[in-house]
């Protein structure tokens, strides 16, 4: 992997719990006013997390880096649209990151169908279980504990959708579920996850 960069600039250590990062909502608000320093701080606090997710979904390192760049340009552009009443700044940012990553894998896939071959890169990131991939922070322990409450099918469905970028219909096919049931497994699993982590309303 790449040499770890950015820590010299005071980035929080990898795996820092959400509570240790600066007030992301406030940084977004300042970014919306054109405050580049605030945005740099936001970047340093969230880039590793967003990039970890993007890389997991996109798998190809070079493409993931492009997507992460797009994500943060988009975050800057949309910063004034973040509404604290509708959720946390981190979730908002991760939603943008995930959406861009999924768009990238799906458009790459569409291109593959047209172009004859698509060289499979060997740069895929480890495909380990979510629980194992989770880092040893308090938050990660909570997530891990919460994941243990899911049924295998719920967990697999969520992982295939979230990290694999598959649609619920594709997830159903991958898991040999009747069409239309994967979305229910995903929803039930997420609700259980939400309730046991204790986020949201």
């Amino acid at each position: 992997m790449d040499p770890v960069t950015g820590n010299a600039a005071g980035a929080p250590h990898q795996g820092a719990p959400a509570g240790a990062v600066p007030d992301l909502g406030a940084l977004l608000k300042r970014s919306a006013r054109g405050d580049e320093a605030a945005f740099a701080e936001l970047y340093d606090a969230t880039a590793a997390r967003a990039h970890g997710l993007v890389l997991r979904v996109v798998r190809d390192r070079a493409q993931a880096e492009e997507v992460t760049q797009e994500v943060f340009l988009e975050v800057w552009r949309q910063s004034g649209r973040y509404d604290a009443d509708r959720g946390s700044a981190l979730a908002w940012l991760m939603t943008i990151a995930h959406r861009k990553a999924v768009d990238r894998v799906r458009s790459a896939e569409a291109a593959t169908r047209r172009d004859v071959t698509y060289e499979e890169t060997n740069r895929s990131v480890a495909h380990d279980e979510t629980a194992e991939a989770a880092h040893a922070s308090l938050e990660a322990r909570r997530v891990r504990a919460a994941l243990a409450h899911l049924t295998d099918v719920q967990r697999e469905a969520i992982e295939l959708a979230y990290f694999g970028g598959y649609t619920h219909t594709e997830v159903a096919a991958l898991l040999d579920l009747p069409v239309g049931t994967a979305k229910t497994r995903i929803r039930d699993g997420l609700i259980r996850l939400r309730d046991s982590i204790g986020v949201g309303r």
Partner: peptide, 11 residues
């Protein structure tokens, strides 16, 4: 919010 916490190893 729940999905955002699923996040994976920071890179």
């Amino acid at each position: 919010e729940a999905a955002a916490l699923l996040g994976t190893e920071p890179v």
